[in-house]
Design a protein around this nucleic acid. Structure first.
Length: 611
RNA sequence: GCCACUGUGGCUCAGAGGUAGAGCGACUGAUUCGUAAUCAGUUGGUCGGGGGUUCGAUUCCCUCCAGUGGCUCCA
């Protein structure tokens, strides 16, 4: 519902002519006049229809509040269709207006309402002080659906025992924190400003202040790292052994499409919408819509299954403003979203286990570890998938925290695992996830032909092996913070470090040598930067360390003569003597199998803007 | 969205009811240098936005915005 408040010396109206939606009113209600009045122009919108009471409550409270604030003495509600292009049905609108009037009157405030659905003339004298004109947009808090039962939490041990939360002791720190937070609702201890934010700044990842809350922008080093992670995410999936269909989609889908609308209703109230005036679109919150919209038109045989579809999808979730967290919770995120079409539930369970393995492989490869929060949409789903989860627990030699949702709510998934790591603030953070979806194939009309030529709905796995690009960045930065805390200089793996090698000529006379070495490294597919500023060697070294270059070498007479360089190796925090060839070999070896992209900014530091 | 704290040049921060201060950066000049800051000069700020109190507000009050933490939430 939209509203425009005007604090007026006087307001006078007269209804002239009926519109098709005019309400019947007594003769004496056609004219009205008030003085020292807060006039409230109101448009009730389509979205308000199913939450009239909440909207009216919210609006009447705000209107009364505004009246007090500006010092008005009475209120006039004035139906006004022109504040929105998505109008509620007349009946609903009149209902809302009447309700607001009653609620305000109940507070002992003088309030009138102009007739609805009439062409009216009016004469208003606005006071013109700063608060005399205000606009409002009331959304109406959704009334939370009363769960029919309780959330159940317990720990499932590898041997199949179910341990109550109270009796579970000696779990990993991550597990205990997860239990405290998820199951017991304990408040986390306050921490100061997290250290990874310093690294975000260093590599040029920040909130974009000219956009909405929760949108990030990436300066060249950050943009490079971002793209490398996206490349990597693509690579993981495409080397999973499954047949993968890489696709690209759009990010908005029409609510006029029943599957989109249905899926959106299940997702809840965090939808970002775009209104073009003609249609309302939801911004996708994952790659599901696009991939399902595409796959429903595919002719699929059981012989081609299972197979996966993949996209690094820009996704949108309207998180509350206070919930956003740089690189972790954003309103725009980039999800390497993988869906696997399976013939049957058992096949889906097999694939589920394989993906679970991938998820653990990746986190272990960066030296970190997950604990599992396993959600089930019902007790039945738990019973059907308990063996699957037990296998997974045994494989990882750890228990899992089980969460069973209240019965009777329609979820499209039956089981999902959230993989949490414990970050440097001692908070469990969900990174990877995998889930079994038994609802969307039917909803979107995705089918395959089975052995008998009959159409069947596939079971769909949803999986984000490394979470989102942003969250994986978070994981890498958090890991670097852990290294710093151990007393060593923080570093990133070479493949993702923006400046893999920094060459620092001692003076201008060494420019030619530096250029030769640079081109040798460049042609080997290594990112090299050159500190060609006229700073002193000390200054250049300092800068290379601040930039977290994986390798940094000073080039002077000695190097030119001997052909050997003393290279500072950041990950070891010491100088190592080597030739250019040995440096190339070393870097090639440690970046083997990882994506590569060239520098996103000039190699010469003298040409780099300060950003 | 709620509660608390914070918001001063590009960056890090100091300051105080009387019209802003340092270091770094940038720019200019000198220096051509051997492993975490070469020297000198110059530039640069509506003290987050709006309103109020006051002779006077960046400083006090209100409000809005943004950031951080916690809560709620996170299909």
């Amino acid at each position: 519902m939209r509203a425009l408040y005007i604090h007026a010396d006087s307001m006078e109206f007269e209804s002239k002519k009926r519109t098709p939606v005019a309400e019947e009113i007594p003769e004496n209600a056609h004219k009205g006049r008030m003085e020292e009045v807060l006039v409230v122009f109101i448009t009730v919108e389509k979205d308000d229809e199913d939450k009239i009471v909440q909207i009216a409550t919210e609006a009447s409270a705000d209107i009364s509040d505004a009246m007090k604030k500006v010092g008005a003495e009475r209120i006039m509600l004035y139906p006004y269709a022109h504040l929105s292009n998505s109008l509620a049905k007349p009946k609903a609108s009149i209902g809302a207006l009447d309700l607001i009037q009653q609620m305000i009157a109940a507070k002992g405030v003088e309030v009138t309402r102009a007739p609805f659905g009439w062409y009216k003339s009016f004469d208003i004298k606005c006071k013109g002080h700063p608060l005399s004109e205000l606009s409002r947009d009331f959304k109406g808090k959704e009334i939370a659906e009363k769960p029919k039962g309780e959330d159940k939490y317990f720990v499932l041990e590898e041997d199949g025992r179910e341990i109550s939360i109270a009796d579970f002791k000696n779990g990993s720190e991550c597990m205990m924190q997860m239990i405290a937070k998820e199951a017991l609702g304990k408040e986390a201890e306050a921490v100061g400003e997290p250290e990874y934010l310093r690294l975000c700044k260093k590599f040029g990842m920040q909130w974009e202040s000219m956009s909405d809350v929760g949108h990030m922008s990436f300066s060249p080093p950050g943009a490079l790292m971002f793209d490398l992670i996206a490349d990597y995410a693509t690579q993981i999936v495409n080397s999973s052994g499954l047949n993968v269909y890489n696709v690209k989609g759009t990010n908005m889908f029409s609510l006029d499409e029943p599957p989109v609308k249905e899926h959106a209703d299940l997702f809840g109230d965090r939808l970002y919408t775009v209104d073009t005036g003609k249609k309302t679109f939801i911004m996708r919150y994952a790659a599901c819509h696009q991939q399902f919209a595409m796959i429903r038109n595919w002719n699929i045989s059981y012989k081609q299954m299972p197979f996966g579809a993949f996209e690094v999808a820009d996704s949108y979730r309207l998180e509350q403003s206070g919930e956003t967290m740089l690189c972790f919770r954003t309103r725009r995120l980039n999800m390497p979203d993988f869906h696997v079409m399976c013939r049957t539930v058992p096949e889906a369970q097999d694939q589920f286990e394989l993906l679970d393995g991938k998820i653990y492989d990746e986190v272990e490869a960066v030296g970190r570890d997950y604990d599992m929060l396993v959600n089930f949409s019902s007790m039945k789903a738990y019973e059907e998938n308990k063996d699957l989860i037990l296998n997974i627990c045994r494989k990882h030699k750890r228990p899992a925290l089980i969460h069973i949702y209240p019965e009777g709510i329609n979820y499209y998934w039956t089981v999902n695992i959230e993989y949490h790591l414990l970050d440097q603030m001692k908070r469990p953070r969900e990174i990877g996830t995998v889930q079994i979806d038994v609802g969307n194939a039917k909803r979107f009309g995705i089918t395959y032909s089975d052995e008998n030529g009959e159409k069947q709905y596939p079971v769909i796995l949803h999986c984000a092996v490394i979470g989102s690009i942003e969250r994986w960045m978070y994981t890498l930065l958090d890991t670097a913070v852990a290294v710093e805390r151990s007393g060593k200089p923080g570093y990133l793996e070479t493949w993702i470090t923006p400046d893999q090698v920094r060459i620092m000529p001692v003076s201008e006379s060494h420019t030619a040598d530096a250029a030769r070495i640079m081109s040798e490294l460049c042609s080997a597919g290594i990112r090299v930067s050159l500190d060609d500023t006229d700073a002193t060697v000390g200054k250049k070294v300092r800068r290379s360390k601040q930039d977290w270059c994986s390798y940094a070498a000073v080039i002077g007479d000695e190097e030119a003569k001997s052909g050997k360089m003393k290279v500072f190796v950041r990950s070891e925090n010491k100088d190592v003597e080597m030739t250019v060839g040995q440096l190339v070999e070393r870097i090639k070896k440690e970046t083997e199998g990882k994506p590569f992209r060239p520098l996103y900014l000039p190699a010469e530091l003298s040409k780099r803007c300060d950003f």
